[in-house]
Amino acid sequence: MLILAKILVTFLTVILLAKVAERLSPRHAGLLAGFPLGTAIALYFFGWQQGEQFAAQSAVYTLPGLAAAICLAWGYQQVIQRKPTLRFLPFAIICGLGCFLLAAGILQLLPQHRGLNFLVVLAAILLFRTLFKSIEETQIQQTPQGIWSNKWLTLLFRASIASASILLITGLAELLGPERAGLLAAFPVSFFPLMLILHISYGASVLSTSIKHYPDGIGALVVYCLAVSSLYPLLGLHWGTLASLLCSVAYLLLYGQLRARLHKSDT
Rank of each mutant, 00 (worst) to 15 (best):
W148D: 06
P111N: 06
L97S: 01
L37R: 00
A67N: 02
L116Y: 10
A73H: 14
C71A: 15
G51N: 05
G65E: 03
P111E: 07
L102R: 01
L252V: 00
Y44P: 01
V79N: 08
Q53P: 00
A40M: 01
L102S: 07
V14T: 06
L119C: 11
F45C: 00
W48P: 01
P111F: 11
G115W: 04
L175D: 08
L155H: 15
A67K: 02
V206N: 08
L116E: 09
N117V: 12
F192M: 11
F88A: 15
I166P: 03
T143V: 05
N150T: 09
I211C: 07
S190G: 12
A73S: 15
L24G: 04
F11T: 03
Y44D: 02
N150W: 10
A29T: 04
S208V: 04
R87Q: 13
M195P: 00
V206L: 12
L101Q: 03
V228P: 02
T138I: 07
F187A: 07
V121R: 00
H113P: 04
Y224I: 03
L122C: 12
L101V: 02
A124Y: 01
L168M: 10
A159K: 10
W148R: 09
L12P: 03
L176H: 05
A173M: 12
F45I: 02
V121W: 02
E52L: 09
Y255W: 05
Q49D: 10
E52Y: 01
P111D: 04
I3R: 11
W239L: 15
T154F: 09
L175T: 14
S230W: 13
P233N: 13
Y224C: 06
A162Y: 12
K133Y: 14
Q53V: 12
A185K: 02
S134I: 13
P233R: 12
F128C: 03
L175Y: 15
L101D: 00
L155S: 15
P64N: 09
L37H: 02
E22N: 00
T39K: 02
F88S: 13
K264T: 06
L254Q: 08
W239E: 12
L4S: 12
F100H: 03
A103F: 00
L4D: 05
G146I: 13
Y76G: 02
A73M: 15
F54V: 00
Q81S: 15
V20R: 14
L183R: 02
L32F: 07
L184W: 12
V60N: 08
F191T: 06
K151E: 05
A29S: 08
F100A: 01
V79R: 06
S229E: 07
R259W: 08
Q142M: 11
V222A: 14
A123C: 06
E179N: 11
I166E: 10
E179K: 15
I135Y: 05
G177V: 05
I41H: 04
L237P: 00
L119E: 07
T85Y: 10
A164Q: 06
C225V: 11
